[in-house]
Design a protein around this nucleic acid. Structure first.
Lengths: 340, 340
DNA sequence: CTGAATTAGTAACACGTGTTAGTTAAAACG
DNA sequence: CGTTTTAACTAACACGTGTTACTAATTCAG
C-alpha cells in the first residue's frame, strides 16, 4: 500500500469549479488580476478542505528557485565534535532563513575533499551557499563565484571579492591580551585555536601580536604554540609552556575548549589560576562561566553571526544587493576569575 | 546580468546528436535498453564537456522523491545552545545520508509550536522525517504517522508504534549509580538533565531508582532535583543538595553540562571531589575528560545514534522494511577521577 | 446605440526530467 | 526470398506548478 496520493492544485480547482489558473492566482495573491470575492472564498475553502499545500518540486521547476540555502561546514569532523560554538551559529542561520521562508540544507564537507558541495548548486538543490570555514586552496569556490552563484562566507578569505560576515577576531584577541597587559603581565604566552593555515587562527594570533606591539613588549616566538580545536592539544601545549624559563605569567588561549585542556595542565602542575598563571580564553562557550575558576574570555556573537550570514545571503539571492559587501561583528571581553 | 543559463539534458543531446531520451538512458544506466558503445561514449563525453548535472527539481517532480531527509530538532533553543551532544549526532546523520545519496535538511522547531514541520512533508520537501526529541502532545506527529509518512524517532515515545532509535539511557543511568554504590556510597543524590516531562529525563531518573532498588537502598525523594540542560541549573540544584542533613556523599547528574555547574557549587562550598562528594555525569562530552577533576560519566554513542537514525530512516523510505522496528544502543561507564 | 474599456476567468505553454510505446534498419531464420 | 527477431534509437506523455496571451461578458463613455 503506497502513501496516499498527494492533493494537487488541480484537485482544488475541480472542487471549486474553476480553472487551475484561477487557483494559482488566488493562492499566490497575484496582483493585477481581478477575482470576485465569491470565487476567492470558494477556492480558499476548497484548498483548506483538501489540506492543500503546493508541491515545491513543481514550484522549483518553474521558478528556478529552491528557497533553500546550503550551509556548508568546512570544519574537520573533530572540530565539529568539540566546537561548542557551532550550534548557536546554525540556529542563527536557521532563524534568519525561516523568517524569509527559506530552508537550510546542512552539508559538512571534509576539508581535504573540498568542492564536493558544488553539486548542491549545479543540481539546483540550493539557491546559494553559506560557507563556514573557507579555505584558500578551494578552487571550486572561486569557480562558483565567477559563475555568479550567490555565495557568502562565514570567515574571511584574503584577496577575494566574495562577500563575507565574520567576527572581528583580531580585535577580540587584542582585547584579551591588552586586558592581561593592563593587569601587569609582561610575559604572555599564546596557544592558538587551530593550525595557522586556518584564517581564524591567524587572525587571533595577529591580535595577540598587535597588543604586544602596542604595549611595546617584545615578542618571543617560543611563547606561541599551536592548538587544534581539542582540549588535548591545549593540555599538551600548556605543558610545554610551563617548561620555559622564565615561565610566562599569563596565557591567551584562542579557544575556550582548548583553554580547558590548558587549565588542567596548569592545575596538574600545582599552579594556581590566576595567581601563578592567568588565563584568558576565546569564544565564551556556555561552560566557560562554570569552569573552576570561571574563565575570562572573549564573547563572540555566535547567534548573530549565523543570523547575519543567513540574512545577507538571502538578500543576495533575491538580487537586492548589499550596501556594504561585508560585515565584521564586534566581540567583547567577559571578565571572570581566571584573570586578575 | 543574470546567472549563466543552466545546461540541461537537451543541451547534451544536441551536442551528441542523439535524442534526450538516449541521454537519460545512458546517464542513468537504465537496464534493458541497448546502446552502442560508440553512442554511449559520445554522450558521456558531451555530458562531461558541458559539465552537466541533472536538475533535481525535474527529477523530483517525475519521481516524487526528493532524496532529502528532514532532521527535526524539537529541543528548546537553550538546550541546543548548551548541548555538546548534538553536533556529533548531526554528523552521524549526515554521514549515513550521504552514503545513500541523500541530503539533510535541518529544521529546529520550537517545542511549543510543534507540528510546523509537517509542511516539509506535504510540500514534498523531504522524503521522511528524523525527529529528535519527540513530545507526547505532538498530535501532528501521530497524524503524519497514520498517513504512512516515513518517520523515525530519535528518542522514545510510549504507546506508539513509530519506530525509533535511542540510547539505552535507563541502563546507562543504572550503570552510573551502581558504580557509586559499589564504591560504598549509600546516600546518593540525583540532578536530572531536564524537567521530567521529557522522556529522556524520566528514563535516566528511572535508571537511578532501579539501581537503588536493586541494592535495597531506600529512596529519598528529597535527594532528586531537577535540572534544565544548563550549568546554571546544576549549580543551583547542587547548592540545595548541600544544605541537606545528612549530606549525600555522592551525586549522579544526568548531564555533563549540568554536572559542571554542580561541581562548581561543590568547590565553592570548599568540599573536595570525590573525597567529600563523588560525582558521576552523563553524556561524555569532549570536555568531560579535561574538567578538574576529570569527570566520571556515561559515554553515549552519539555519532552512532545519528548514523543509525539516518540509515534506518532511509531504509524505511526506500520501502526495504526493518527487521526490528527499533534499536537501543548501549552506553558505557567511563571511570575518571570525580568518583572514587 | 455603438465602440471602448473593464471584469472575471481560462487555454495553453514552459520548466527539466523519467519512462512507455513505437519506429526504423539490419540481422537471423526457415 | 519472405518473415520474424533484434539492435539502436526516438516521439510523446506525465509530473505539478507559474505565467502569458487570450476570450467572453459586462459596464462605461460619447
Amino acid at each position: 500500500m503506497r502513501p496516499a496520493k498527494r492533493t494537487t492544485s488541480r484537485d482544488v480547482a475541480k472542487l471549486a469549479h474553476v480553472s487551475r489558473t484561477t487557483v494559482s492566482f488566488i493562492l499566490n495573491n497575484v496582483s493585477g488580476v481581478s477575482i470576485s470575492a465569491e470565487t476567492r472564498k470558494r477556492v480558499l475553502d476548497a484548498a483548506k478542505k483538501l489540506n492543500y499545500s503546493p508541491n515545491v518540486a513543481g514550484k522549483k521547476l518553474v521558478s528556478g528557485k529552491s528557497y533553500t540555502i546550503g550551509l556548508v561546514l568546512c570544519q574537520s569532523p573533530e572540530q565539529i565534535f568539540t566546537d561548542a560554538f557551532l550550534p548557536q551559529v546554525i540556529l542563527g542561520v536557521e532563524q534568519a532563513a525561516m523568517q524569509q521562508g527559506f530552508h537550510v540544507l546542512l552539508k559538512p564537507v571534509d576539508p581535504n575533499d573540498t568542492g564536493g558541495y558544488a553539486r548542491l548548486i549545479t543540481e539546483n538543490h540550493v539557491d546559494g551557499i553559506l560557507l563556514s570555514g573557507p579555505r584558500q586552496d578551494d578552487t571550486a569556490l572561486m569557480h562558483l563565484h565567477e559563475q555568479r552563484v550567490p555565495i557568502l562566507l562565514m570567515g574571511q578569505l584574503p584577496d577575494t571579492s566574495i562577500p563575507f560576515v565574520d567576527v572581528n577576531a583580531t580585535a577580540g584577541a587584542e582585547l584579551a591580551v591588552t586586558h592581561l597587559i593592563e593587569r601587569g603581565h609582561q610575559r604572555i604566552g599564546m596557544i592558538t585555536n587551530a593550525p595557522l593555515s586556518y584564517t581564524s587562527a591567524k587572525q587571533r594570533r595577529d591580535g595577540y601580536l598587535h597588543a604586544l606591539k602596542k604595549a611595546k613588549l617584545l615578542i618571543d616566538k617560543a611563547l606561541i604554540l599551536e592548538g587544534n580545536y581539542t582540549p588535548a592539544s591545549g593540555f599538551e601545549a600548556m605543558k610545554s609552556l610551563l617548561l620555559l624559563t622564565p615561565r610566562p605569567t599569563a596565557v591567551f588561549v584562542a579557544s575556550d575548549v582548548v583553554a580547558m585542556g590548558a587549565m588542567l595542565a596548569i592545575k596538574q602542575a600545582k599552579l594556581r589560576i590566576p595567581k601563578d598563571i592567568a588565563v584568558v580564553g576565546f569564544d565564551d562557550i556556555p561552560l566557560a562561566e562554570y569552569y573552576d575558576p570561571p574563565l575570562t574570555t572573549i564573547h563572540l556573537p555566535a547567534f548573530g553571526l549565523g543570523w547575519a550570514g543567513g540574512e545577507r545571503l538571502i538578500r543576495i539571492i533575491q538580487g537586492e544587493g548589499l550596501n556594504d559587501t561585508s560585515l565584521l561583528l564586534e566581540s567583547k571581553l567577559i571578565t571572570r576569575h581566571s584573570s586578575p
